[in-house]
Each structure stands twice: as C-alpha cells, then as structure tokens.
Write a protein that binds this DNA or RNA. Structure first.
Length: 439
RNA sequence: GGGGGGAUACCAGAGCGGUCAAAUGGGGCAGACUGUAAAUCUGUUGGCGAAGCCUUCGGAGGUUCGAAUCCUCCUCCCCCCA
C-alpha cells in the first residue's frame, strides 16, 4: 500500500493542475485512504472540491493481475488482460524492444498512437552501463526518464550472458561482464540484478538467467539450467526482501531454460511453476534451433506452466512464429526483428515479406502496405521508401520501424479478436502462409 | 609562347616488367538478421565455364620470352610561369 502512495499523490496533483486548482508549493492533504483488504488489487479514488462537487475519479491498481477473457476451443490460445499500475495490457501481445530506453528510430508518440504499443522493453545490462543507476534513480525511474507512461518490462541481462559471451566470465555466484563500451568490469549477481531492476522501475522484471547457446551439449544445458534455478531462488529472495522505489508495484517473472532437451525443459518448467510468480517466461529458444524444435518445446513447456498466469516467450519472433506460438498458449512476445530487420530494409506485411531495397520496387508507386493501419503505410510509396534506404536517409529507418511495429501489434490484436470470435485456428492457418511468403 | 603532371573497371583511386582480370573505398545487385555491441554484417560486381579459356588499364605502333607498367607518335585533361 505504501508503495502506491507516491503514484497516487502524483496523479492527484496532475488532476488538480489540469483543473487549475493546484499552485506551486500548495500542500495537499489526502484525507482518508480506502481501507484495503489483503487480496484487493485495485481501489477507486474520488477527488471532491470543498463544495462537494466531484472533480475526478480514478482507479489505482497496486498489484499485477491477469484475467483470461477467453480460452480458444480448438487450440491452446487464450485472450486475456494483464493489469499493471501503468495500465492494462491485452493479450496476446507483442512488446517492442527498447534496449537502452528507446525503441530505435521511433518516438513515444508514434509508439502510443500509431503503433498502439501497450508495453515496451528495456534492458538491465545496457541501462545499467548507460545512463547508469544514479541518473535513472534521480529521474524517478525509466518511465519518467523516457516519458513512457505505459507498462515497461526489463530483461535481466541474461540474454547478454549469451550474446556477449566473449567478454564475460560466468561462475556460480554470477557473471562478470567486461563492458562492451569501455572495457570496465561489472559483476552481475542475482541480487545485484534485482537491485538494478528496482532502480529502473519496470512493471515486470525478469529473473537473472543464462540463455544457453545452440547447439549446446546436454551436460552444459543441465548445468546451466541448475545454475539458472539457483539464481532464481536468490532473485526471489532479494525481490521479496526489497521494496519498489517509485510508488508502484513491480512483479518478477522467472524463466524456463533447458535448451532443446525435453526432460530438462520439463524439469525447468516444473521448477518455474512451483515458484508461484505472477507470470512465467520461456527463454533459451529462437537461438538457432530448427523452428519445429522451438514449437515442440514451447508446447511442452506451456503444458506445464500454470494456465492462469501469463506466459512470455522471450525473443520470438517472426510473424508466423507469433501466430503458431499463440496457438500453443503463449501470451507475450518480444523480438528485435520488426525494428532491426526494418532498419535493414525488411518489411513485414499481411501479404508477405518485402525487401524494400530490391530493384523490383524502384518504380512501384503503390503504398508501402495498402492494408496497413499506420499513417506511413498509405502516405509513402514503396519506390519512395526504397529511395530513402538507398540515399541512406534517417527517415527510411523511421518509416520501416513504424510500419513493422504497427503490423506486429495489428497481428496480435487480430489474433486476440479471432480467439474471442472463436475462429482463431482457421484464421491462423491462412495467415501463417501469407505472412511468411516473399513478395 | 615556355615548363611540368595525368588518362586504370559504373565512379574515385592504388598498382609502375611476370605472383594482375587488376588493391581499397564508394556505387550497383543479392543475401542474412529472433529476450539489440546492429542505420549492421556477408557475398557478388568484364564474358563463358569444372579446371580453364577469351577480351580489358585513352588510341596507334614498337622493345621484350613476357607490358596496365619501358620507348615513339597521336588525342584529350589538369597545374605553374609569361
């Protein structure tokens, strides 16, 4: 409860300011707070003028909540809602990646109003190195720092254990990274990662894990999984022993590992399920294994993870991957593909994949995506976007990123609609072929 | 008028007797990218083909076993002095 206090006062001052009541240095007395029962997750606040006239009401949630709106009949897909203090996330959802506090080449306004992103990612390792914890804490957390008022999820740096494996040393206690920026040494332990994620202040924070490479021997995968499990216990202990810093709740998601080995995946999924966190993640996939393998392992793990908690498949994927994994019971996705591949000239559309740099688009003056919903889709032609890429113009990266993210959010939104309408599988089977074709 | 420096593939530019179908950039063409060291990276860029062969370094001739490289002339460009 006390954790919510700051956010509530902040919100009240905003309302007073909007109504022209609040002046600088005015003291606000918050009269009586509603009494809360232990399992309540939200309450309503009413702001009254002294005359008794109702000025405003708003609802405050102080714990994450997941509700399932509908379960698909012909597959394991679900449509749900995750409620956080920064807003509601409708699932299945795709979360744009904003590693260093910015979804590359995209403004927050575009993210919110064009792309309709409901939650974005940040990265613990990268934000810790730059701008650093002192800046983030002084700013009042990442939401305030980067002006993103909706939910944020931070990855723990577990992916960097994999992607930056050439400049880190792993041991039982944690990982010593050599900064890719200046070569300085930084030790990441589960406790330290929890402390950093408290400072960053994302709504959903990930446990510190090791994302195993592919291929990976059984022995390595087993040892790594056991280490990830030990780290998870330490993450949970530190998380429970600490408080959020900015007046809103944070929730911790553990991560299933086990590489491509079914028995390890089962063991890991059972361990993660037993932690009773408010959501669970599947890691260590989409690192180069055959796609069928990824689907089978996702299905296996989903069958073990609790049904009443959101499931987050980390780092996935292509539009087809999303659709398939939604049908297997995944609720949340993130991937650099729409942004990175977009910056490299690849456009994802409902009719297939376009390499916009190719010569074939040189004189194609048709819209980038005639079925697309964002303003860039109809405002600009393929030929113009191709020209911008060839001329190395910054605008090319912006247009491609906005388009791709907008398409990804549209895709998961449509998936949700079709789950609710009860015709998800039929729709999915048609879309899977279309989105994976080359134009 | 006098003196000097150049001309190399789509462009810029190295090479200055054999290891040269010719470095390196850029441009062109294509490919890769899945919890972001990424506006990045890789391949390819005279013609046919498996090795290999054929035509290429402003033009024409020559020296040499062998020339993008040396010599002669021609054409064009640039710089300095008057």
């Amino acid at each position: 409860m006390s954790a919510s206090f700051l956010l509530i006062t902040r919100k009240i001052t905003d309302i007073l300011r909007i109504n022209g009541i609040f002046e600088k240095n005015t003291q606000i007395d918050i009269g009586v707070f509603p009494l809360l029962k232990k399992n309540d997750i939200s309450f309503k606040i009413r702001i009254l003028k002294t005359s008794g006239k109702l000025l405003s009401t708003f609802k405050v949630n102080y714990r994450m909540k997941f509700e399932i709106d509908l379960l698909s009949k012909d597959c394991s897909a679900r449509a749900g809602k995750i409620t956080t203090m920064h807003g509601v996330i409708e699932t299945p959802i795709f979360m744009p990646v904003g590693t260093v506090g910015s979804v590359k080449a995209v403004h927050q306004t575009e993210l919110k109003e064009e792309i309709k992103a409901q939650i974005i990612l940040g990265n613990t390792y990268h934000l810790y190195l730059r701008p650093g914890l002192d800046v983030l804490q002084s700013a009042g957390g990442l939401h305030r720092f980067n002006s993103w008022e909706k939910p944020i999820l931070t990855d723990s740096g577990g992916y960097q254990v994999y992607s930056l494996s050439h400049n880190r040393k792993l041991n039982e206690n944690g990982v010593v990274f050599r900064s890719h920026i200046d070569g300085s040494k930084h030790e990441f332990t589960p406790e330290k990662v929890m402390d950093i994620e408290r400072v960053i202040g994302a709504d959903i924070i990930m446990a510190f894990d090791e994302c195993t490479p592919y291929p990976c021997t059984y022995q390595y995968a087993e040892n790594s999984m056991e280490l990830t499990h030990k780290w998870l216990d330490r993450c949970i202990a530190r998380f429970k022993a600490s408080e959020p810093l900015y007046g809103y709740d944070q929730t911790l998601f553990p991560i299933v590992q086990g590489s491509i080995y079914r028995d390890l995946r089962i063991q890991s999924a059972e361990k993660i399920a037993s932690c009773e966190c408010e959501g669970n993640a599947i890691g260590g996939l989409s690192v180069g294994e055959p796609i069928e393998e990824m689907y089978q392992l996702t299905e296996l793990v989903c069958s073990i993870l609790p049904k009443d908690k959101p499931r987050y498949l980390m780092g996935v994927g292509t539009p087809a991957n999303l659709l398939e994994c939604i049908s297997l019971g995944v609720d949340m996705f993130d991937c650099v593909m729409p942004t990175r591949n977009g910056r490299n000239g690849m456009l994802f559309t409902s009719k297939g994949i376009i390499n916009i740099k190719n010569e074939k688009w040189k004189k194609d003056f048709s819209p980038i995506d005639e079925d697309g919903l964002s303003f860039v889709d109809v405002l600009y032609s393929k030929a113009y976007l191709r020209h911008l890429f060839h001329a190395n113009e910054i605008l090319a990266l912006q247009i491609a990123s906005i388009h791709n993210l907008s398409f990804y959010l549209w895709l998961v939104g449509e998936a949700r609609k079709h789950i609710i309408n009860g015709d998800f599988v039929r729709w999915k089977n048609i879309m899977m072929k279309q989105v994976a074709s080359r134009m």
